[in-house]
Design a protein around this nucleic acid. Structure first.
Lengths: 213, 213, 213, 213
DNA sequence: TATGAATGAGATTTCATTCAT
DNA sequence: GATGAATGAAATCTCATTCAT
């Protein structure tokens, strides 16, 4: 435990430092040297744990995202109704990004643009979580909760795109103010736009024409 | 005229080459040397036209975006109704991104993450175009077209976020298939979610009349 | 005359600009581009008149120094006495350096350190003027004006070294105050130290020895 | 100790190589690449030890000069009489320049012309040593050893100017012959020129005795 | 003659990465 | 396991210089 513990500690320490530095400066501008300094280890030590700068980058999301997604997946069976599932996922993203600003900066500004990462292991969790949303939307269509002519992929893009866009701007603007909870209003609009609800929409009405002479 | 033509040509040739290389490899991975090779000029020549690699990057959007935005702005007064204005802007983005894949790759994958660029001149056009959408939304709220409790900034984020997200994924997936026109369905959902309910949406319905006896 | 005049003008204009820029920034830090700008000609034009940056550097002293030295040489026969000849030469240097600060900066800070220049044509005038001083000193020794055990080369080094040192420091200190006339005091000391004069020095006294037994 | 030794070695090895190359070619013409080659290290290694080419240049005098000056300063209190103090300092310069030809070349041909260096730390030692001379001269004036109407700054300029001029020419002429000891003759002249006349200069005379009957 | 335009040739500098200890 | 020290490999950028017009 002693060795293992110490070892694991150093691993985490490096990851944390890398997250912080990458998050602040971006992948290319960040240097191993600064990460090492912040982690309190030598540069060479970083290479004991991670094969390369890119490996270190890719190793970061593994932990954080996986944890968040596993929580969501575990919760999923207990949530009833497509809408609630979507809401849960959306809040999952929201909280993940909000509570881990360096991480979200890293993901939104660096990782997302890295094709290699998209194919790397660390991205699997993100994919699974995106799949959860898609499933929920499709479930909603099947169940009649949502209109059947909607494109589930588009709806998911709207949800994820909005969340990313808001956090993205937040980062670029220097993370000054806190990000308000925009999930409910956003879902209000999107769900309002795709729900097939009791109150028939205008385009669903039946018109009774007066008898023609 | 001859001279001028040749000069302008070289400027454009470099911009085009840079657009291509930056678009493919990203700003940091791209090298001046490759851009020079692709442009068919020497590296030194690039520095005759652009002071630095970053200047070159920032010079790219100036032309393309400005043109697109100016068209939108010129058109704006002739478009009546908030919804139509929004639609016009959304299609503006859509077409811009769709017709200039290298450019959209560059903007979405590189420029957007560059704080310096956000403050640079080339970005002004993008800002103006984003302002157009916001104005339209606010106009819709004032006119009663849209519910008054909506957050115009959120709505704009939804529109832009969705567009960016879709194109973003398209780039990361290798631009294989053509991007379908998702603007109408997207706006259908969003506008459907923000329109003031009392207002009958007669204009959206298709009526099939029963056969007349 | 028109052509020639114009042509000569441009030559001078370039020399003057070069003198100014070299004098201010030093040879290596100065750029042809800045000289061209200051001269109001294109860089290429400079190469019409001078083969290279170094040629331009070497061309500068030719005019100024030659003029000053020729004046000295012309005057020389009319000056009587070693001391007066030395004084004339020393003041020649003094005035040259004082009245042409850029030139003296150039010579003291750049040209002097350039072995190629020492062998170049432009340096001949300087050499001739240094020879004048040497001749005068030797003349003084021959005539008995100066002590015969002095080293004329050393004396010349003292004169030139002092003048250069003073102006050198003046340049490095930013040419703030005007350089005072230190030639007379300096020569007072040096000549005082080498003159074999009527007022017998201590070492020239006659000793009357007590009668030897 | 082993490590420390090796480390110090490399530092010195680079300094020595730089001294040699700068001394030979001058600062601007010298290249890091050649210094690295001569030092037997990579260019990158040089940058591990010195932040920039200029830093490397400025780091050179620190050691050599400081040592020489500290020796002088330590000796100073034990030397009695202004004249002897001046002589000691002058020989200090003389030996420094003579025993370290590369160094003196560097100082006289490169460093002295660098305004930044004049303000840099490495130059402090030179300044202190120049102050020593000035103090000695002023002491001589106060004590009546020297005439009171002399300008101590001028006298110092004469001493330093002469020394620099002689070594300077030596370098430019290719350091062929050895530099003779010109300090004593030079001081003989200068001191002869500034000494208060009343004081008999018994120690300088050669006496030829008349034939004894 | 004059020059706008283009470039060859390098120089400095930066960093990720390696390796002996 | 940890690291100090060293470096290979590039990349950006600068300028003196050339040449077609």
């Amino acid at each position: 435990m002693g060795n293992d513990y110490r070892s694991k500690d150093k691993f985490s320490v490096i990851i944390d430092a890398a997250l912080e530095v990458f998050g602040e400066k971006g992948y290319y501008t960040a240097t191993i040297s600064e990460i090492a300094r912040k982690a309190g280890v030598s540069e060479a030590t970083i290479y004991e744990y991670f094969g390369s700068k890119e490996d270190l980058l890719f190793a970061i999301p593994g932990e954080i995202t996986t944890q968040a997604v596993e929580f969501l997946e575990a919760m999923s069976p207990y949530i009833k109704g497509a809408e609630n599932k979507i809401r849960a996922s959306a809040y999952g993203y929201f909280n993940l990004y909000k509570n881990n600003p360096d991480y979200s900066s890293l993901v939104l500004l660096d990782l997302k643009h890295n094709r290699k990462f998209m194919e790397a292991e660390g991205y699997q969790a993100v994919k699974r979580s995106a799949a959860l949303i898609l499933d929920a939307i499709e479930e909603g269509v099947r169940s009649g909760e949502f209109a059947e002519d909607i494109d589930p992929y588009l709806v998911r893009s709207m949800i994820l795109g909005t969340i990313e866009h808001v956090f993205f701007r937040w980062h670029l603007k220097g993370r000054k103010e806190e990000v308000a909870d925009f999930i409910d209003p956003m879902l209000g609009i999107i769900l309002g736009g795709i729900k097939r609800d009791g109150q028939p929409r205008a385009y669903q009405i039946n018109i009774t024409l007066p008898p023609q002479p």
